[in-house]
Design a protein around this nucleic acid. Structure first.
Lengths: 131, 131
DNA sequence: CGGAATCCCCGTGGATACTG
DNA sequence: CAGTATCCACGGGGATTCCG
């Protein structure tokens, strides 16, 4: 198998942990791996963004979901919210150090999808055709 | 910023793609990044598993969600379903080559959570206390 | 501009029971 | 053992409206 010992090691580190339903990481993981969390984090990789900029960039997200996700990400210490006391108010969101460290594996995952989406769609078509 | 050009590059590859709501990768991404998809894939990294083995390992997942996730993963060509025609029936699930290639970035992500969950929980506590 | 609040719907997802 | 089927509740998530 091509997966090698590296993955095996990674797996063992998680064995008694992530797979346990009582593990504390579960709720925290859900927040990030939720439908939008991934994209919001990824969108912030290039630097600070304003609310409306994020709203446009992520594409398809509603204001509600965006603000909701941002709130929980701020709470988790992944995103920093900066308010410029002007009129009209200027609110900027940026990744914290913790958020940036998360962005790394996250971007690799997104990149994987970018590269393999076609393969997956092909597989689905073939699967549906066979059925 | 510490994120460096590597991430910038990764980002640009996604720019006109993943963030577009009409992008084909969205539904496919949702299937995997859904609550259980990640864990199911990760659980299969160590090798083939039977249904009940997965049911126990993932912990907290219902039979319904497990079979549902497995079905869509098989459809996407990430997981292979192997039936041994015995009585009682023995059904084994394993990662395909495509699935294994996905497992790599996915495991890194899970590893990140394993290492940083504490930091996130701390941040949440501090945030809640400040409020 | 950047949200918070409200309304409402539909899908996710759990529990249970049944089948091959 | 490996599911499928049915029922049901909750909350994710969209559209709209209002506020500072």
């Amino acid at each position: 198998m091509a997966v090698s010992e590296q993955l095996q090691t990674a797996y063992r580190m998680l064995a008694g942990d992530t797979f346990d339903s009582r593990c504390a990481s579960r709720p925290v993981m859900d927040q990030v791996t939720t439908r939008w969390g991934t994209l919001v984090i990824a969108a912030l990789v290039t630097g600070p963004h304003r609310f409306s900029a994020l709203h446009q960039r992520v594409g398809g997200i509603s204001q509600k979901m965006l603000s909701q996700n941002l709130k929980s990400l701020v709470r988790a210490g992944l995103v920093e919210r900066h308010v410029e006391p002007t009129v009209p108010p200027q609110v900027t969101y940026s990744l914290t150090a913790l958020g940036e460290s998360l962005a790394e594996p996250l971007c690799e995952l997104l990149r994987w999808f970018g590269e393999h989406t076609e393969a997956m769609l092909d597989a689905q078509r073939r699967h549906d055709a066979a059925a």
